[in-house]
Design a protein around this nucleic acid. Structure first.
Length: 1024
RNA sequence: GGACGAUUAGCUCAGUCUGGUUAGAGCGCCACGUUGACAUCGUGGAGGUCACUGGUUCGAGUCCAGUAUCGUCCACCA
């Protein structure tokens, strides 16, 4: 009848349906004018490494929404792609190059390094895309983009050009976080603070023309070389007489002023006097700007002291620190030193200390751009789910801090600025715009009119007038060649990686090319339309799904550039989902190396199980802890990572992973020994930090939490299997109203109610609640009650037809509702159902689609829902449970038949008789006397339900004492509740102040409880 | 230092927005149960003074204030 195996086999379903969907183009999203579009842009993963469970959560939710909307009739585009991730990727490749070959980027040069990074990118991009595909992601893969590809680069350069032309890009010397190892500026969000043991020195500077000395403290003595003032608080009487005088820096013999600045100096701290090094400290920098102080840079890019450091030149800054201290001591200006914990900024990428450093950078003016991005949230055009995250967004944008967009890296979008040393001939500049000419060493370089036009208004000079800077528009090779010929050079720096990802929602759709659609990867030349209708149709997008840590870095900037380039928001909803933490509560990240590869889990539990479990995590508040174990590849024993030793290296897998996990370099990789005494075999283990050796058994990372999803899938599988085993002779057609039994009406009511609830929850992005609703319906209602109740009718020729039609209807709708959560198993079951019941559904059967992916979302009649019917059913359930309870308490096996008498009113009695066969079916109990006059037979166990009392004669089986005790316990419980209610009702304030409805409810409940109590007491009297 | 979130059963989490009978689920635990949907299962059960202290209210897990602990983000620390 059916060849379904008892266990669902996820692997075979995945292998079968992924290619099927792909070949049929179900993932493809093309413009269909009379259908609504639904667009999700993937939060582009970095190509630094493989995806972890955080990405799997993110991807699952996006695919869930995409499949849901697709079934609802949208053209649902999910745009895939990856991010070059500038500094992160370059750092990974550089680190590996250094470890494996001992080479730095300066050894190999720009071109070779960039080539190496491209190779890395190719490897990881395909690995990432494969991970997404294995997850069932229904992205339009033909549209896969990469932030450095031609389409994206085009958008980057056009945006830069536009910003430059609008005067929103400027260059200036700014204090940046300088990574002396990578020799690059690092963004504020790419640094972390760490306390290290340091010292707190106190020195003095001599006041000029005075015998006085002024004392100050510092943790970085070498910065004295760059001091250009000392500062006191304006109201500090101790120093008031010194303000305006000068001090001499003994080390370099420079005279600097004593100034008063209330923002910098704090009377309570240290000596109350602070030295000012504007070029090497953020606060001092701000102070320097306020007071027009000189800014002396004392560092080279590599962290050594430069020529401004006098005799300390070319010493590393830490060596210089010692030398400076020694010199000051020698000169008699040392006061004291104490040990102190000092928070030091470190680069997230190189893990080395940051130096504040004055350097040339490009900036975007944020005032208006940020304001516009704030306005669209204010007026509700963009909304956050949950709403509180709008605050994060607004607070950050509200600062309107200019965006430093240049990075001293080789991997990224090179800044489209060409510059030339101008030897002071700044007066020639206006003539450039007028004549499109540039005088160069007596020669005249002439730009064509067309090219000159492009440069019109797109130049600037540095503050000192030494450089002429030109911003070059997209792909203008000719102009670039002419510029080169004229001695111009392109800026060495690249753009902040967020610059290109900020454009993602429109760049991927082909902007700024409004003439033709962006090419598809599998048909690169097929872009022949006269208009880019893809951009039109899919922009603005629908919802952005992301985790909260990039609301500022990414979400805000997408809104900002979307408004600037497109004049419209990039998406109307932002769905912020929880973070996946490791078992110790730390966030998973590629750099920490504590990520769990979703493929490991998919391997063990199946994709659908992983997706379903993951969706059940996605609530509104809590982050999700994911404790993991390793699975011994030899015996499948689970190995707890927190206490097990790693073979020969004697390393315990760390409790907290802070990037200090041992990465083997040329050494044998750590080995895990199975704790199972019968096994004791060795294996390597899955880690994102390096690949295991080939041909060695690898212990997968697993997490028992995913058994939740696996068990559910298996339950669904078996319920469907049961249904299909009972479809023999199935015919399609409507059902007669009179043929519908209580359980049919009930399950259809529950189905319709569940579908409504599910839809409401999905529309609010409450995935955790959605999984609960659908799971509870499937397991607790469909399987536990409906299937059990319908079994006898499926064996009865006269009743089978209606039962089959209802059963198939419910199953079909259930599969459809579950498809966005669990695409593979639902497709597998759909296909099998298609073979047995190609036409199905109520109230009117229709032909099923060839794939569940393209099936319409269930729209079930609302009038199926009946709360009266559902409460009637609840009474039946309670009665059955009460009987089962008695069986369990007295240990009466199912093989012993029971008889049940019920005392109740006529209405309930009629209902009970109506479902009499179910007592036998579900509890192996025969329904005996039912009605208002039923008396409790002696020697029986009983139960009271409020509107019905049940008696089960157990003469000879029942233990009178035990039954008495049981009933007394029940009485005490009821008495407690009743006392509580009576107390409430006797409170005059409650009766007068609480809403009438609440009071009435309490009275009603109390009456019910009293009824129950009366019945119980009756039983007790009988027993005694 | 600021912002946001969390603290509920042994574990992982719902429920709090919108206060109202006996606070739920999954896993784990206990007892019983396998000749056809499912042991990745079924039936029944035990297990929680809802972090703490105050307040508001007829009534607080739910609202308010404060405290403690944890997490995340932001800022700062001569």
């Amino acid at each position: 009848m059916t060849d379904l195996h008892k266990l669902y086999d996820p692997r075979s379903a995945q292998e079968k349906w992924l290619p099927f969907w792909d070949e049929n183009g179900y993932f493809d999203a093309d413009v269909v004018r009379d259908k609504p579009s639904h667009t999700i842009m993937i939060p582009l993963p970095n190509v630094t490494g493989a995806l972890h469970m955080g990405h799997a959560l993110n991807g699952t939710l996006q695919d869930l929404i995409t499949r849901y909307r697709r079934m609802q009739g949208h053209v649902a585009l999910w745009m895939p792609g990856t991010d070059h991730a500038g500094i992160a990727t370059q750092a990974v490749v550089e680190r590996r190059m250094l470890e494996e070959e001992g080479l730095t980027r300066h050894d190999v040069g720009r071109e070779a390094l960039v080539n190496r990074i491209w190779k890395w990118k190719d490897a990881y991009e395909s690995r990432i895309l494969n991970q997404l595909k294995q997850l069932g992601a229904s992205c339009d893969w033909r549209r896969t983009r990469f932030t450095l590809d031609e389409i994206c680069s085009n958008a980057v350069r056009r945006t830069f050009f536009k910003l430059f032309g609008d005067g929103l890009i400027y260059r200036g010397k700014r204090l940046v976080n300088w990574d002396t190892f990578l020799q690059t500026a690092v963004a504020d969000d790419e640094v972390f603070h760490e306390n290290i043991n340091g010292h707190f020195w106190t020195f003095t500077y001599p006041v000029v023309d005075s015998d006085e000395r002024i004392a100050f403290s510092t943790t970085r003595p070498e910065t004295m070389l760059g001091d250009t003032a000392v500062c006191v608080h304006p109201s500090d009487k101790r120093y008031a007489h010194l303000v305006g005088k000068n001090v001499r820096i003994p080390l370099v013999d420079r005279e600097i002023p004593i100034i008063a600045d209330g923002l910098l100096a704090d009377k309570e701290l240290g000596t109350g006097c602070v030295k000012v090094t504007p070029a090497h400290d953020p606060n001092d920098y701000a102070c320097g700007l306020r007071n027009n102080l000189e800014m002396i840079n004392i560092l080279n890019a590599n962290g050594t002291i430069n020529e401004n450091g006098g005799e300390f030149e070319s010493l590393d800054r830490y060596k210089a620190r010692e030398a400076v201290v020694a010199k000051m001591e020698e000169l008699g200006h040392f006061v004291d030193v104490e040990d102190r914990q000092i928070p030091i900024m470190h680069s997230d990428r190189s893990k080395t200390p940051i130096e504040p450093y004055l350097s040339d950078q490009w900036f975007i003016r944020m005032d208006n751009l940020a304001q516009n991005a704030m306005d669209v949230v204010d007026d509700g055009r963009v909304s956050f789910f949950p709403a509180r995250y709008a605050k994060t967004y607004m607070d950050w944008l509200g600062e309107k801090r200019d965006w430093c967009i240049s990075r001293q890296l080789w991997w990224g979008h090179r800044i489209p600025i060409w510059s030339k040393t101008f030897n002071g001939r700044t007066t020639d500049i206006p003539s450039l715009e007028a004549k499109a000419m540039l005088a160069e060493d007596g020669e005249t370089v002439v730009f064509t009119d067309e090219l000159a036009e492009q440069l019109s208004g797109r130049y600037t000079t540095t503050d000192d007038g030494e450089l002429l800077l030109l911003c070059v528009n997209n792909g203008c090779k000719e102009l670039e060649l002419q510029l080169e010929a004229a001695g111009f050079e392109q800026d060495e720096d690249v753009l902040d990686t967020w610059f290109s990802s900020a454009l993602w929602p429109h760049s991927t759709l082909g902007w700024p090319d409004l003439e033709q659609n962006p090419p598809l990867n599998n048909e690169p030349d097929a872009s022949s339309t006269s208009k880019n209708n893809v951009l039109d149709y899919f922009y603005p997008g629908s919802v952005l799904v992301t985790s909260r840590d990039i609301i500022t870095l990414w979400v805000a900037r997408m809104v900002l550039t979307g408004l600037y380039n497109m004049g419209d928001i990039p998406f109307s909803h932002v769905c912020v989902h929880p973070k996946i933490l490791d078992g110790f509560g730390a966030g998973m990240s590629k750099s920490k190396g504590n990520g769990v590869d979703p493929l490991d889990l998919i391997d063990r539990y199946g994709t659908d199980a992983v997706r379903f479990t993951i969706a059940s995590f996605a609530g509104e508040t809590q982050d999700v802890r994911l404790p993991i174990s390793y699975e011994c590849p030899h015996c499948e024993e689970l190995i707890d990572p927190s206490h097990y030793k790693l073979g020969k290296l004697e390393v315990v897998v760390p409790k907290t992973l802070k990037g200090e996990f041992p990465v083997p370099a040329g050494e044998p990789k750590p080995v895990l020994v199975c704790p199972n005494k019968k096994c004791r075999k060795e294996s390597q283990f899955s880690t994102p930090l390096y690949d295991a050796d080939p041909d060695v058994p690898v212990a997968r990372m697993v997490s028992e939490r995913f058994e939740y999803g696996r068990n559910f899938c298996n339950k669904l599988w078996n319920a469907s299997r049961f249904a299909m085993m009972n479809l023999e002779g199935y015919t399609s057609g409507p059902v007669e109203e009179n043929d519908l039994q209580l359980e049919d009406r009930w399950i259809l009511s529950r189905l319709s109610t569940t579908a409504t609830e599910l839809q409401v929850l999905l529309d609010k992005y409450q995935f955790d609640a959605a999984t609960r609703v659908i799971r509870d319906f499937t397991w607790n209602e469909f399987c536990d009650w409906y299937l059990e109740m319908v079994k006898p009718r499926l064996r009865d020729d006269n009743q089978r037809t209606t039962a089959q039609r209802v059963l198939v209807t419910v199953l079909e709708s259930l599969l459809k509702m579950l498809h966005p959560f669990a695409p593979f198993i639902t497709e597998e079951l759909w296909q099998r159902l298609n073979e047995m019941a190609p036409e199905r559904g109520l109230p009117q059967p229709i032909a099923a689609t060839e794939s569940i992916m393209i099936a319409p979302w269930p729209e079930l009649p609302h009038n199926w829902q009946s709360s009266a019917l559902e409460s009637r059913f609840v009474r039946l359930q309670e009665t059955i449970v009460a009987v089962r309870n008695i069986r369990a308490v007295y240990n009466i096996p199912l093989s012993t038949p029971l008889k049940l008498h019920i005392r109740c009113n006529d209405l309930v009695a009629a209902e009970m008789r109506d479902v009499a066969p179910q007592f036998d079916n579900l509890a192996k109990t025969e329904l005996g006397d039912v009605g208002a006059t039923v008396q409790r037979p002696s020697g029986s166990a009983g139960f009271a339900l409020g509107d019905a009392d049940g008696y089960i004669p157990l003469e000879g089986i029942i233990d009178r004492e035990a039954e008495l005790e049981r009933q007394q316990k029940e009485r005490d419980k009821l008495t407690g509740f009743i006392t509580g209610h009576e107390k409430k009702l006797s409170n005059r304030n409650f009766v007068s102040k609480a809403p009438d409805q609440v009071v009435a409810e309490v009275r009603e409940t109390l009456a019910g409880l009293k009824n129950q109590l009366e019945s119980v007491e009756q039983i007790i009297r009988d027993l005694s």
